[in-house]
Design a protein around this nucleic acid. Sequence first.
DNA 1: GTGAAAGCGCTAACAT
DNA 2: ATGTTAGCGCTTTCAC
Lengths: 337, 337
Amino acid sequence: MTIKDRARLCGVSVSTVSRVLNDRPDVSPAVREAVLSAVRESNYVPNNSARSLVKTSSDDVGLVVRGVSNPFYSDIIKTIGREIDAAGYTMVMQQIGASEDEIACGAIMEREKKLRGLIFLGGRWDYSPEELGPITVPFVCCSFTNSFGSLPRESYSSVTIEDDLAAERAVSELVRLGHRRIACLVAETDDRSISELRYHGYLKALRDAGIEPDGRLVARAGGFNMADGYAATVRLLDSGAEFTALFSISDAMAIAAIKALYDRGRSVPGGCSVIAIDGLAFSEYIRPTLTTLCQPMAEMGEESVKILLDVIEGRSGNRHLIVEPVLRRGASIAPRV
Amino acid sequence: MTIKDRARLCGVSVSTVSRVLNDRPDVSPAVREAVLSAVRESNYVPNNSARSLVKTSSDDVGLVVRGVSNPFYSDIIKTIGREIDAAGYTMVMQQIGASEDEIACGAIMEREKKLRGLIFLGGRWDYSPEELGPITVPFVCCSFTNSFGSLPRESYSSVTIEDDLAAERAVSELVRLGHRRIACLVAETDDRSISELRYHGYLKALRDAGIEPDGRLVARAGGFNMADGYAATVRLLDSGAEFTALFSISDAMAIAAIKALYDRGRSVPGGCSVIAIDGLAFSEYIRPTLTTLCQPMAEMGEESVKILLDVIEGRSGNRHLIVEPVLRRGASIAPRV
DNA sequence: GTGAAAGCGCTAACAT
DNA sequence: ATGTTAGCGCTTTCAC
C-alpha cells in the first residue's frame, strides 16, 4: 500500500495524492475529497522514512532521554514537549537505557529526522569534543553539564542547578539545626557523576562549618535506586557509626533511607533528620514528608527549549543557564536534640 | 556527508562502503580497514531513513508505551527489551502521551521500520476492528486487553491479569479481616478503563460477602495520579462517611490515600486498612509498607515477547494469557478492631 | 489544477 | 573482491 497504489486507485497522479496528504492548496476540492476518502478506506499510512529521506529540512527537535522511566524526568518532558509545540516545532523523543550512548542516538536522529536541534535530558558529564563530532546541530544539556569533560563552553548549552552548591545548601540546613554528625548517602560511581558533585558539596558544607568529615558516615549505594539506597543505609546503621542527620544525594535514595531508619528503630526526624535533593512529586506523599531541594523542573524545561530555539533561530549563541533549586520544607528535619 | 562522499574520499565504490558498514564478509581486510578509519574520522553516521526505506524486511519489533514515565512500566520495558534481544530481534521503543493514539503510532512505526510485530504497553480497552486496520503485523497488548471493544479474539494477543478478579481478591482480604464498611478509591474516567474493571471487582466482592455497596464510600479521583488520589480521599474523609478499610485501584493512589488518612488523623492500618493493586517498587518503601496485589511484571514482559515471536514465526496463533497477581503482604491492613 | 520525472541515501542484485 | 545500477516511497520542481 504505497502512494502509488493510492494514485492508481483514484485515477490521479502520485503528486496529486502527495499534495492532498500534505494539505497543499493547489488541488481541486473534488479531487481532494475523492483522494481523502479513498485513503481513509484503505488504511494507507505514509512511510515516514521515505518522507524524511526526501525532505532536506524539518522543524523537528530531538529529545534524548537517558534512563527509562526516571520519574524525575516526566514533568520536564511534558514541559519541553509543550514548549516545542508552542513554538511551532515538533518534538521527537527517544528514550535510551542508562548504558546506551546518547550521542550516537542523537546523531542518528539528526540524520534520520533532519533535526534542527537536540535536547539531552540526563547524560554523561564528561564529553570530549571528538565524541561530539557526529552532532552538528545546536544542543542543550538539561539537568547535567560538562563539568568533567573538555567541551568548549561556546559549543553547547546547558541548564542545570549547581549541584555542589545545592548539596552545600542542604547540608547547611542541617548544620543550622545544630547537627554535627551528618551522614551522607551517595551512589557508588566513577568520579564523574552527579553523585560526586553533590558529595563534594556535602564535604564543603561540613568544612565550612568547622566539622571534619568522617568517612565512616558515608554510605555508598551501588546504584541510584531505592534498593541500593536501602541496603547502604542499613550497612551504615549496622556499622554503629553515630549521626543525628543524613543528607541523601537524591530523593529516591532518601526515601529508602527513611525506611531503613525506621526499620532499625530510628524515627525521622526525631531519631535522625533527613534532607535530599531533587524534588520528586512522590516525596510529598511519604511520612514524614521529605524536606528536599527541588530542581525547578518547569523552569528547566522551558529554558532549555528557549535557549535551543534562540540558538537555532540565530537570536543568540550558546548559553549556560544556572537555575536555583527551591527548598521544599517537609517534616523530615528537626533541630538536634 | 553521505555514503557517496565516503566512497569518493576512500577511492572505492558505494557498495564497498556499504559492505564494510554492514559487516559483510566479502571485503578485503585492507579496504575494510581503510574505509573504517575514514568513516571514524569523518563523523559519518548512516541515514537510517534511507536504510530502512530500501530494506524490505527487518528483525525489528516495536514497543509502544502509553504514558510517559509510568513507573509501573519500567521493569516490564527492561524485560521486554532483554527478551527481544535474546531472540535475535531488535526492539524499537516509542513512548507516547496519554492522549496520543497508540494505533497510529504503531502503524507509522510498522511502515517506517518494517516491523515484524508490535507490543503495546498500556492502551485503550475498546478498539474496533476498523481502527486496527492500519496494523498488519501481529501484536500483543501487554497489561491491557480489549474487554470493552469488538476485536475478534483471534486477531490479537494479550497478556493481563484479570483486573476484576484481582480487585475481588483484594477486597476479599479486607472482608476476611472483618471489614464491612470498605471504601473504594477509583479514577474518574469514561466507563471503559482499568479503573472500572477493578471497581466492578470491588462491588462483586462486597455483594458476595453480603455487603450492600454504599455509593458514599466511593472516592472518585480526577485522574490516576497521586494529587488527585489525595484530594479524592480527603473529600471522602471530610464527607463524614464511615469506613474501616479502603481499597485503591492503584498503588500510586493508595500511597496518596495513606498520606491523606494520616493528615486527617487516621493511622494505617489502625484507623483504616488500605490495600491496592499494582505492586510498584515504591510501595515497599512507605510506612506502613503497602499491601498490594502485584502484577507479575517480569512474567508479563517475558510472555508478551514469547507469544509475539510464536505468532511471528508461525509456531502458534494469537493467544490470550491471563497471569496471576501475587499478594505482597505489607503492613497496611489489619483485622477490624 | 494536474502529471511526469528527478532524486533523497542507501542496499542488493547483478556484473565483472 | 569490487563496481554498477536499479529501485525503496516519497516530495518537489518543472511542464503543461
